[in-house]
Design a protein around this nucleic acid. Sequence first.
DNA 1: CGCTATTTTGAGATGGCTCAAGCTATGTGG
DNA 2: CCACATAGCTTGAGCCATCTCAAAATAGCG
Lengths: 243, 243
Amino acid sequence: MPELSEIVGRIRPVPLFRGLDSAALQRVARAAEQREVEAGHFFFRQDSLADAVYVLHLGRVKLTQSTPEGHQVVLRVVGPGGMLGPTAVFDGLQYPTTAQAVRWCQAFAWSGKTMAALMEDCQHIALNALGDVTAQLRDQQERYRELATEHVERRVAQALIRLVGQAGWKTEDGVLIDMPLSHQDVGEMTGTTLYTVSRILRRWQRDGLVGVGRQRITILDSAGLAAIASDLKNGSARRATHS
Amino acid sequence: MPELSEIVGRIRPVPLFRGLDSAALQRVARAAEQREVEAGHFFFRQDSLADAVYVLHLGRVKLTQSTPEGHQVVLRVVGPGGMLGPTAVFDGLQYPTTAQAVRWCQAFAWSGKTMAALMEDCQHIALNALGDVTAQLRDQQERYRELATEHVERRVAQALIRLVGQAGWKTEDGVLIDMPLSHQDVGEMTGTTLYTVSRILRRWQRDGLVGVGRQRITILDSAGLAAIASDLKNGSARRATHS
DNA sequence: CGCTATTTTGAGATGGCTCAAGCTATGTGG
DNA sequence: CCACATAGCTTGAGCCATCTCAAAATAGCG
């Protein structure tokens, strides 16, 4: 169990706690519990009672949602500093998503009640949380629009670009997406099948845009990928309107 | 210009201001500006500077987002008591969506700065806003999953059910969706084309599920529609995974 | 009462899904 | 250290839900 001061040091740079003075940070730190989650294990599951808010310190988490029929989509990938489960702040609700560690994770946790109290205590936290969730909403809206109006290839390009931002790791030959990432996963992020992802990635590999390995994707030509994502060449969009 | 007490009376039942005492409500009311927007006109447009937060008092607003190529999706419909433009609370951002009045609207407005100050002043508002945005996020995530995994017919059924909740008006023969609603609009809500919407609605009309008129849709058999939406009969889902 | 926006319908094209099968890393137990 | 098992990846062939485009029918509105 680390010292209080160490916890404070770890949560200080977290966006959720931006603007807090030392006293407030200490109060937050004192209320924090530490959690570790093995790769593949879960922070929480969809439809279970939302009882805790997490802030990720180390590792990476995949947020998914699935239908009763078992079809799944990946909504988001969260890295260090990110918040999980804002829903828990409000009483009696269930998590709308499942949060699965894609590797070993270390996180801080607060019960929903505790976090609510901390927010009342210190408006900055509530405001920061609002900013975070608002940003997430924007992102989700954008992805919704993409899914509704863009072709698969562009969506996959967009997804990779997002992943670079969230988990990009500069290497000698390009930018590695630093997490295990199957074609299945990419399909679930973009609303398509692993087969289609495979074909697209293969083509891009032949064109020298990306490097593909088992659960590993490296971006070799970001500009080229961005060009596909924003359509600086082929057939624009479709569907919804031709106003 | 109505009396302060009248404004207080109007904003008191708004979810964003739930839990405020009279003094706080008065402060909020004093800072409020009133706005009226004609049918078809805009509260704000995508990509313009997000400078104000609105709370709708009367009317109905359509939130849309469009691509550079001009393809548009409808993200949400907001009715009385709803909040518009939470983004404005945070400095220097642009509205991610366009807010268009689908009929004459009356609303209260606060500059982003003012609303931020009110939130600092009174944590309840920030917490209420967080709850609102979190709920929106949940909704958006769910719709994303739907779009990624369900067939058009189910999505349209879901959209109508949502619209009933937001703008349903009980009549003698069924529930009228009380706003002008073209097939184009429904298509933009569900990620399909007006042609497909027309065919689906026509079929449902023949089956006695809905009544269709020019920009008017009435639900005659909610149960039947819900059955389609949750698939109590025909071919489940597709795409994304067959894990 | 004509104009314009909306809705309907048909016919044809197609992107991407499905299913089936083989291939290949990686890890595991002998 | 090898052989096998497993999970992930690739590829082909066929299909089909839905999009496109075109055109006619309809309904409000000025």
